[in-house]
Write a protein that binds this DNA or RNA. Structure first.
Lengths: 155, 155
DNA sequence: CTGCCTGCAAACTCTTTGCACGAAT
DNA sequence: ATTCGTGCAAAGAGTTTGCAGGCAG
């Protein structure tokens, strides 16, 4: 999904909800779509402030749900305390994450069967599926070679 | 895995680490293995205190990692702020969770293919797989019928 | 007497919220 | 005017940690 289309989608969502397109929201949007990797709320705040230094932490946290609800951003929870976000691709929710447990780097992989599996399993239980997440934890290449991740920042 | 075997495993783990088998740790162990459903740290504290009222929250939080590291307990993170735990079955990590987004009830389902998938994907990236989690979010039966979960405690 | 264990309370991290001011319609 | 949006600071939830005393080997 291109930035242009995402911006349209976002603005359409805001309009539909009777919400306003403010400078702060746009700054946060632009900051999010300038990222190439996964990012946290805090990182997003920094980037957004570089665009518009009036952006506050509260507004970032209030805007993130708007962006995920409008499906222009995907939330990735790897169970590490903080949540990660990234621009949603065109692939919907059919993405699995492979996480290096040493440096927390997140690789993403298309996994279309997940949707099929989610439906199958849900229906078997009599449930109505909404979404599914598949996450693999692993040691990265560098770890295998040197016993340590180059990116590693953890204790 | 029976309680008896789990207790052996736990004590062996403690011994191997040069840690002591204290009354508090045993109370927490017993409380954990008396549970039929998933439980939180806070719930475990309550149950453990019913067995030995000297158990503190700190000790519960210090003991939980010992029990997961010795593989007698499984940690389940459904991205809801708090973590859930349950006695580990014999199935290893080959279990998927189906979570009702309305009442947070967690269903578990055997999913042996996950392990295969985790390996395949990791190796393709040059990583060494450790574990994998598959989680499906869904609306439960009651929700479909009444628009509301019977267990629902959320706002 | 050395070192692991403990409870308590304070600290910490990430996120949410109440409030009063400000801006858009 | 009315409604929505904002920053700030405080609150909140869940978890971790420093400390001084206790208990075990």
């Amino acid at each position: 999904m291109s930035v242009v289309i995402a911006r349209e989608k976002f603005q359409a969502y805001l309009a539909q909800k009777g919400l306003r397109v403010t400078n702060q929201r746009l700054a946060i949007f632009d900051a999010a779509f300038a990222q190439k990797e996964h990012f946290t709320a805090e990182q997003l705040l920094d980037r957004a402030r570089a665009i518009d230094d009036s952006v506050s932490r509260a507004t970032v946290y209030r805007t993130l749900p708007l962006m995920t609800e409008s499906h222009i951003l995907r939330e990735v929870d790897i169970g590490s305390g903080e949540k990660f976000y990234m621009p949603a691709g065109t692939g919907g929710t059919q993405v699995a994450q492979v996480v290096c447990v040493d440096c927390d780097k997140i690789y993403e992989i298309s996994a279309p069967f997940m949707e099929w599996y989610g439906s199958t399993v849900s229906l078997k239980l009599g449930l109505k599926p909404i979404s599914q997440r598949l996450q693999v934890s692993a040691h990265c290449i560098a770890f295998r070679q040197t016993g340590r991740c180059p990116n590693r920042t953890k204790k």
